[in-house]
Design a protein around this nucleic acid. Structure first.
Lengths: 220, 220
DNA sequence: AGCCGTTTATGATCTCGATCATATGATCTG
DNA sequence: CAGATCATATGATCGAGATCATAAACGGCT
């Protein structure tokens, strides 16, 4: 039982969306493969806001969260990076990090200095292309998340989220905790649990643990 | 189901938090400059979900909205593109468009076939780099917007938005309508007006028409 | 097994922002 | 210039979701 969790096996199976290019992208893999991995334990920081931005990261294992803090003292999560994804790509074009990066669990990352990346771009257009694909895919995901927030009603929001994630058969299988899904949707976990329960009661979905099945009129 | 309203007038050139790299990016400008512009009027579609993805676009004027529709009948807005931005960059990596693209006002776009773009990437690493910067910048903007939505309190949200937009002197000058700013923030315009009024009353800001000045402890 | 922390879950209350309504000033239009 | 339309603004009310509280289910650990 050295494996604490059912960690990401699938490279983030977002249905219908762009398949994340992580798996096939040998160029980026090569760029980071020669680097020494770095490990973080839960709560540890990879970097802090204001530090000189020297490297971009590739997450090998675990999840990292980007935090920005407000004057009021409390911090706001901007983004959660998962295994297989680039992390802090924006650092390529910034002098300093503008967020804190904190490990949400035990994390392993590979880092690559910005200058090396830029040199590699110049040398290999296929690497540049792969990089573009990765960033484009993340952009797409971020915009999806943003537009979900434009749906005010919790029920509609949750339902649309499920529809967007559903496979062709109308099934969704969440890998993480519902707690995290709730946060991703901008709802308190209480509201999320309640809404799911309500949807099940009304027959719009059926669930068994983390598997959710949508009632027939589903669509990608 | 929602017809876009005939809101026009200002070209909505709101100054972003990150300087969009658009202005300096001669490579991308050159790539699109040889293309014939295409015009759309309000409500018209640039492309439809399912059509073969042949081109990526650069918005010259106006705003375009990406729509995905669900089986339920209603559509979800995924993204709104503005003048100066690339549009449908994800098409580079997809066989068909997975959204509808509809003009929110009178729009002019330049289009460039995917194959041409890919060829250009191979030929010019500086173009690839510029493209990466553009997409990264949009990713950053999208995540910033998301961050704002994670702030529940309207007052904190509005204040944080002002702080992000403020110049070094603590001043913000909105070019568009407050109405649009409200929507961008995920608030009703009523709530936004009220919150601004409240902030002014409490002395946190001072305003004269569209110029807003933050009280000294303004943060980045 | 038994203990402790966390996730899932639901109930009770309350707050804040949505909604509906109304009004004034701007801007356009014929 | 009168009339229409829209942006800005504020008041009154209401309800959805946040918050606080409690509890069962689950997993990890010794």
């Amino acid at each position: 039982m050295t494996e604490p969790e059912a960690e990401t096996r699938h490279p983030v199976t977002t249905a219908g969306e762009i398949e994340t290019p992580a798996s096939q992208d040998l160029d980026t893999a090569a760029l980071f493969s020669s680097r020494r991995d770095r490990s973080l334990s839960l709560g540890q920081f990879l970097f802090r806001q204001g530090e000189t931005a020297e490297s971009v990261f590739l997450i090998r294992r675990g999840r990292l969260r980007m935090l920005r803090h407000l004057a009021s003292g409390d911090a706001v999560a901007i983004h959660t990076g998962r295994a297989g994804e680039l992390f802090a790509e924006a650092a390529l074009f910034a002098d300093s990090y503008h967020c804190d990066a904190q490990a949400l669990e035990t994390v392993t990352v590979a880092s690559c200095p910005k200058v090396d990346i830029q040199r590699a771009f110049a040398a290999s257009s296929s690497l540049a292309m792969a990089w573009i694909e990765r960033v484009t895919s993340q952009l797409h995901a971020a915009r999806n998340a943003l537009e979900l927030r434009n749906i005010r009603s919790a029920e509609d929001r949750v339902l649309k989220h499920l529809q967007l994630r559903a496979s062709a058969t109308g099934e969704v299988a969440f890998e993480g905790r519902l707690l995290d899904i709730a946060a991703e949707l901008g709802l308190t976990h209480e509201a999320y649990y309640r809404t799911l329960a309500g949807l099940e009661r009304s027959g719009a979905i059926s669930r068994e643990r983390r598997r959710i099945r949508l009632r027939p009129p589903f669509h990608s």
